[in-house]
């Protein structure tokens, strides 16, 4: 079989990469906040679902995608607070609570899809107002670059802008310092009077808001519809990205771009009847290998360090 690479690898493929990376990136950025406070957030998948659904509800109710965004943020915040309450106040295991949240989210959105919007399976309607693309004034006139960077949906720009914001918040503000202190050494944080519980609440809440953005992007940009299981594993992918970057925003961004590229490429391959699944597997395989490699690096460094010190002490 002859494959024309020029038809597969095009500029629009890279534009699609940015688009595909956006929801995962948003969930990843949110998850970074909770993971930096020391919480392994399995519930991102469910939060994306909730965000996507309530964005649709809000858009229909208010007639504006921005109204939908507000609805999504409120819904995801409430869900996150419930998660936080059950985990932090009732001391339930975060993973089990996360799984419960996922199940609950699927059940709830699917049910409300019928009960509120009167649809089963999926909802699509002219009442549903999605975001419209943004043309960036100067860039839109530059050839090549415009195809890549201009004409995206607003949440795409917001997502990539947020990478910088998240980086600055985590590594340059007192709040970010406190978050990282709680996650890395909770005793150190407690000893100087930081309230770890409050920080964790904040981390989870921020994760919820970011998932609301990610969910809204899925249902109100590109395709304006909500379908059952719309998040389709992007929450898990976000979890992989967080782990890939060990909780740091920049490496996580790289991971999201790889994932987005794999997604976009898979879509393209599908159109040509080529096995897209192998490409889609890549993000997970890469994450698996990165986890292994970083652990190997860590352990061997430990071993080497001990070997060095032997000589030192005997000398």
């Amino acid at each position: 079989m002859e494959i024309d690479l020029n038809r597969i690898i095009t500029l629009s493929l890279f534009a699609a990469t940015l688009r595909m990376a956006t929801p995962v990136l948003l969930a990843t950025l949110g998850g970074i906040f909770s993971s930096q406070t020391g919480i392994f957030h399995v519930g991102l998948e469910g939060l994306l679902d909730i965000g996507a659904f309530f964005a649709v509800v809000g858009s229909v109710a208010t007639g504006s995608p921005w109204g939908g965004l507000v609805y999504a943020i409120v819904a995801c915040s409430i869900a996150s607070l419930i998660f936080a309450f059950v985990h932090l106040e009732l001391r339930a295991n975060e993973i089990i609570v996360g799984l419960a949240l996922n199940i609950f989210a699927t059940g709830m959105t699917n049910f409300l899809l019928f009960a509120v919007l009167g649809a089963t399976g999926y909802y699509q309607s002219p009442l549903l107002k999605g975001f419209s693309v943004v043309q960036i004034p100067v860039i839109k006139d530059i050839p090549v670059i415009n195809e890549l960077l201009s004409g995206h949906f607003p949440l795409v720009y917001i997502a990539f802008f947020m990478v910088i914001v998240v980086y600055l918040v985590l590594y340059r503000t007192p709040f970010g310092f406190h978050i990282r202190a709680v996650g890395e050494n909770i005793d150190a944080a407690k000893a100087i009077g930081i309230n770890p519980k409050r920080i964790k609440y904040a981390g989870l809440l921020i994760a919820g808001v970011f998932c609301a953005l990610g969910g809204s992007f899925m249902s109100l940009s590109y395709l304006n519809l909500f379908s059952e299981g719309i998040s389709a594993g992007r929450g898990w992918l976000a979890l992989a990205a967080i782990n890939f970057g060990l909780g740091r925003p920049i490496p996580a961004l790289v991971a999201c771009l790889i994932f987005g590229f794999a997604d976009a490429l898979a879509l393209r391959l599908q159109q040509f009847g080529l096995p897209s699944q192998i490409v889609l597997m890549l993000p997970y395989i890469v994450t698996f290998l990165v986890l292994g490699a970083s652990a190997i690096q860590r352990e061997t460094r430990k071993r080497n360090a001990s070997r060095l010190k032997v000589g030192h002490e005997h000398a």
Binding site: I82, V86, I96, V97, L99, A100, L101, I103, F104, A105, T106, G107, M108, N110, F111, L113, F114, A115, T120, E228
Partner: peptide
């Protein structure tokens, strides 16, 4: 809709 069962299951897990 049968999806109501999902909510019941989720609530029970909580």
């Amino acid at each position: 809709p049968q999806t109501v069962v999902g909510m019941v299951k989720g609530a029970i897990m909580f």
